[in-house]
Design a protein around this nucleic acid. Sequence first.
RNA 1: GCCCCCGUAGCUCAAUGGACAGAGUAAUGGACUUCGAAUCCAGUGGUUGCGAGUUCGAGCCUCGCCGGGGGCGCCA
Length: 629
Amino acid sequence: MFDQEQRTIEAKIRTYCARNDIPLSELKWVPIPFSGEWGISTSFFQTAANESRMGKKVNVPQRAQEIAEQVRGAALSVSKDPVSDASGICRVEAVKGYLNLYFSTTEYACRVIDIVLEQGRDFGRGAPKGERVMVEYAQPNTHHSFHIGHARNAILGETLARIVQFAGFDTVRASYPGDIGLGVVTILWAYQKFYQGQEPAGVHARGQWLLKIYVEATNLLEPKENETPEEKTQRETYDAERRELYRKWDTGDPEVRELWRATRDWSLEELRAIFDMLDIEMDVWFFESEVDEPAKTIVEELIARGIADDERPLGGAVIVKIDEKLGLEKEKYRTNVLLRADGTTLYLTKDLALAKIKFEQYHVDRSIYVVDVRQSMHLQQAFAILKLWGFKQAEKCFHLGYGFVSLPEGAMSARRGVVVLFKDVADQAEQRALAAMGKRTPDMPESERKIIAQQIGLGALKYAMLSVDNNKDIVFNIDEALSFEGHTGPYIQNAYVRANSILKKFQVEKFRPEAQPEGLKVEGSAPASFSLKPATFNFELTPHEIQLIDFISRFSAMVEQAASEYRPLVIANYGYDLANAFHSFYHAVPVLQAESEDVRNARLRLVAAAKQTLANTLWLLGIKAPEVM
RNA sequence: GCCCCCGUAGCUCAAUGGACAGAGUAAUGGACUUCGAAUCCAGUGGUUGCGAGUUCGAGCCUCGCCGGGGGCGCCA
């Protein structure tokens, strides 16, 4: 916001230090961490330490303070036009080795709010970065139902995609369902043998039904303790049938393929329904079944390039001795298999083939994988091989690992049917939100109430997933995940609603409505800033206003940080802080009842800016911003 | 045996190597005739697992130890 002033002062500092032989280190500016005023700050400890290293005998903190004081004098006096209100910086102080530049409150408030209102939904958006990034997430197996662990993946991936997109990357969202493999065939086998034609109606019911079949099938196919010879024979017969089915699939048997395609579609339909609920729109769908052939092809290429070693003549597999090829002394990436002795591909093989497709056909510069942290080793191996292969994009491959989601009673297991389904939690969330809405909105039509309850429920669930650092495991406690109070999604949504409420009331009083723009589904929205009058903020601001403007002004920097670190948590935390600042402001500072017309106009602009920033933040989190709740 | 992640308030979690380690939650007290109380305000709560090291400065970086979780060539 004050880049110009910052650069001018930096130049003055540099000049001063050059003239006085002070070995200035890099100037890093951070917001002054005290509330009540705004400004930026930089320290001179590093510079003082430089002197110390050069042989001068100095006490570093003391010397840092001396330099800060001298530089302060320079900043104020080098120019004939001293730093003043006019330039936006009203005060410069040197304290404890830091140089603090304080912004003029009036000037700062005006600039921040003008920018927000002018840029609207683009406030905080980064300039185009000229790079394409692909975010691969949502890789559930088909023929299963989507559980709460899958939901963490999808929510994390979507939010990351929104963040990098908003930060200025050309962003491609990719899903990669596992639509073939032994697990899938197991379900096909049981379906065909016991349940053909018995599937229930309803997209979700059918998807969940497939999961039940899987549990039963697993039960039939797994060895039991103390099993009788008859049971053993039975089980082995079943297993042989399953293997035969897989073989038929592999050779393209039309009947098996048709069975597979039909059941697979049920899962994909459910997956698409869930993406709709989560507000996810995929750009690209990769399927494991379609990567198999390309995977076989690349194996030959990797052998030809001398990256892979073919041990098939010895009755072995095709492997890559990654450490050896990289010339590493200590073992790090170890060795992995590209092709089994029987000639079939593996997960790693397919991922390599898929990466090649991403780079060559989709022209991806950066490739992000949102995958369970337990697959960290495999992805590191894949990236290492891509590097050996000569793909420069390998440097910009990134594994966003996340800890797994377990239940209070232990780990989830699809095989045993011990899972918490996403759909069930989402339904529960809606019910709880409806109950919480209670009498707050007596005049709201049921249809709208339902929509908003979904938005609140999912807001709570999503925020619960995003407000924990991705590398930490989560024990899924439904009461905590669906809490609507405190550090939660609805807390942020509620701040947005309150901001809207003020603006709405103002407009109703002022203009009587018809001011309702067309196309807004939700009643009571007051988004238009056209009716806001210019304001100067030429009055003494309360600490609450200062705090709120401070958080608003940091939004762009937060987006940039979250994108460069690939960390949705940064935005989740920011959203809470911003909402918290707004709630405090809301409670303590009258807007419509402000003491004068000028103050009221200014505060209305501030409320509109806060509302906009909350809206943009919620969008990044994939959480809807209802106008009422 | 080797590698990765984690250890912060009773509990759940934050904190680009910088100024005073912060929130939520639980318990306590207060604030609705007011722009919506899903909120706000107040006090309480800490040897950042332990020990060294690097640094002007370490919750953060390095090493060792303790404790928990995950992974390690034909599963995904």
